Structures are given as structure tokens and as C-alpha cells.
Simulated scan of single mutants.
Amino acid sequence: MIRNREFGQVKGERKKLSFFKVFNGADLSSECMRAFPYDLMRSISEKDFSYKMVIRAKWGSSWEVGVSKNSRCYYMEKRGWDKFVSDNALGRDEFTTFTHTGKMCFNVSIFEQNCRELLKPRKPPTMADPIEIKKEEGECSYKDVKKEEETVESSGGVDVGDRKKKAKESKTSKKKAKESKTSEKKKKMKVPEFKITIRKSYLKFLAIPKQFVNDHIPDESKIFTVHHPKGDGSWQVLCLVREARTIFSSGWTKLARDFPLLVGDKCTFKLIDSTEFLLVISKKARKKITKGC
């Protein structure tokens, strides 16, 4: 008569102490899940308690698990138990038996939900190689995500291109503001002026350049004071505003005689106040004219 070896092994193990656990969606690390049946622990000899618990699988793997006791029960310590659960990827409604073989060694049999016994180790869930992850519709690859993360990290949460663009725009804006401010400052510091070379007719009246009139001369006729640059005198001159042109008229001939002004003098009129001019004559031009006479 042929005997089934596996059947004989099961029949023999029925005489040994054993217990079972079902690994479902509950907390697999809870004290209740790690607890031993009270009657089982009462049946194990005190001599066996001197050994550390070992759980051994049929394919040869084993796990050491510490055993502790509280006022209610004996239980397996969390560290070793979690290692056993994790290495076997338990938690899918497996039916698992633990059979005591002596000296706190337990043979474990794991039955899957389809009632098949697990006879070789489960491969733990492995992550696909990130580099080989393909793009699906509406998703991006690991490379794209990694690149984006590195870009964001290196820029403080802002895209590098945008940051450079903003920095450039900010720099340009600051430069323009500085130039504008400098220009305004120069305008404020610079005294408005116009230049005239004296002709013979200018000794009777002086026509003021139209652009200067538009920028600095009021729309009504007024008396202006013209000062000598060395303080040798000042003259009251009427600035006559007309639609066609604006001229120095009344008082101008006296200024031309007293100053004195000569034909060919290069004159610069500086507006030092709203109704005051400083008249400066080029020394080189005056020396040349005097030499020629």
C-alpha cells in the first residue's frame, strides 16, 4: 500500500501545538494580530520559553521574533513580526498556520485566497525601473518629472528660464529708471541757454531762437534783467512776444552800447532765473575781432 508522504506529515503535525491567523485588511501590526492563543502558550513548557521564537517557511527562510507578555496575553514583538509580514507580502486574506516543533520554532504554512499553499517565496512588489516608465496619455515620464523637479528645486519653486527672463527684465527696468533719473537730474542741473553770433542788425534788437522761446519764455511780453558775467552792470530789457517772433527790444540798444557788443561776438545767454539772463561773450572770438580791427 502506497502512503502519501504529505498526508503522513499533516497527520503527524496534527499532534503538535499549532494556531492559525488570517491576514486580511485589518492592522497587521496590532497587538491582537500578534497575540498567541492563551491555551497554546499554557501548553508550551517553560524550558521552551528560554529560546527565541523562530518562524520557518517551507522554502527555508526563517525569521526571529521576540516574545513578550502583558497582563492579558503573550504576543510577538512588533519588529520581528513586521519583518515576517513584509517579506512575505501578507495582507491579501491569506490563511496561515503556525506549528510548534519545539524550542519555540514554528513551521509556517501560507495558503492564498485561492486555497493554494505558498511553496516558494513571493517576490516583493518591485517598482518598475523609473527610466523605462513609458508615457501614458495624460501622464508624464519619470525623466520629465525628475527634470521638472530638479528645475524647480534649483530655482526655489520657479522655472529657470522664467527666472532669468524676469531677472533680465528687472535689470533692464532698473537701468532705464536710473538713466531717466540721471537725465532728469542733468536737466535740472543744466542752465537753459541759447547762443547768438552778433550781426549788425542785432545791435538794434535781438531775435530770440524760436525753440528757446517755446521752452522757456512766457506767452506775454515781460521785462528781463541781463547781467554782465563779471558783475560790471545789469540792464533792463523788454522781451517783446509776437506771433511771428520774440525779440529783445526796448533797453537792448543801451545794453549793446554799454557792454559793449561788437559784430561777430559769439554770445551765450544763460537763463539763471525766470526773468534773468547772464550774458557771456567768447574771449577767443573777441580777441580775434579786436586783432582784426
Rank of each mutant, 00 (worst) to 15 (best):
I2E: 06
E6T: 10
V10M: 07
K11A: 11
K15N: 14
K15S: 13
S18N: 07
K21P: 00
K21D: 02
G25P: 00
E31Q: 11
E31I: 01
M33S: 12
M33V: 06
M41T: 08
I44T: 09
S50Q: 13
K52V: 06
M53G: 01
R56G: 03
G60P: 03
W63H: 04
V65H: 01
R72P: 05
R72G: 10
Y74V: 02
M76W: 02
R79M: 09
G80W: 04
W81R: 00
D82A: 03
D82V: 00
A89N: 13
G91Y: 05
E94H: 06
F95K: 05
G102D: 09
M104S: 05
C105T: 13
V108I: 13
I110G: 06
E112I: 10
N114L: 01
L118C: 08
K123C: 02
P124A: 08
D129F: 09
I133V: 15
G138L: 04
G156H: 08
G157S: 11
K164Q: 11
K165V: 15
E169W: 09
K171C: 04
T172E: 13
K175P: 00
A177D: 15
K178H: 06
E179S: 09
E179K: 13
M189V: 12
V191W: 11
P192M: 05
K200H: 12
K204F: 15
A207V: 13
I208V: 12
I208Q: 05
K210M: 10
V213C: 14
I217E: 01
I217R: 02
E220K: 13
V226G: 02
V226T: 10
K230A: 12
V237Q: 00
C239K: 00
C239E: 02
E243M: 05
E243A: 06
E243P: 00
R245N: 13
W252C: 03
L261Y: 03
L261H: 03
G264E: 03
D265K: 07
K266L: 05
T268R: 15
V280Q: 09
V280Y: 05
A285L: 01
A285D: 13
A285F: 01
K291P: 00
C293L: 11
